[in-house]
Amino acid sequence: MAGRRILIAKPGLDGHDRGAKIVARALRDAGFEVIYSGLRQTPQMVAAAAVQEDVKAVGLSILSGAHNALLPEITQLLAEQGADDILVFAGGIIPDQDIETLKEAGVDAVFLPGTNTQDIVDYLNDRLG
């Protein structure tokens, strides 16, 4: 089970948690151990929780437009804490033009509106082995 522990987090001020909670439930139902951060998490809080909980992956849900500021900071903080082996993926409203930049900053995958939760399950099964 320890190999399948995931943190789902809501960075920034965005309170839209329908997607985060649906993904959290779907991953739990697919056999992952899921920790949900709750709302209004700073990058420091997300990185600290990921390290302390020893998760294999962090899913970041963000719909407010603050992704360019917050997501690279999270990957950087993870790297600084020697935790860059933690897989970081994101979902929400993210313009196409920002996806490449986020990937260069260490976000492994970005899931956009309309994604089937099974695709996220398959992705994690594939990446986490």
Binding site: L13, R40, S64, A66, A69, L70
Partner: peptide, 22 residues
């Protein structure tokens, strides 16, 4: 925008990346 909704000024740490977005 979200910082106004949550009672933070635009120079607050929690406003990072959110100013004028939503």
């Amino acid at each position: 925008h979200l910082p106004t909704l949550y009672g933070y000024d635009s120079d607050h740490e929690m406003a990072k990346g959110e100013v004028g977005k939503c």
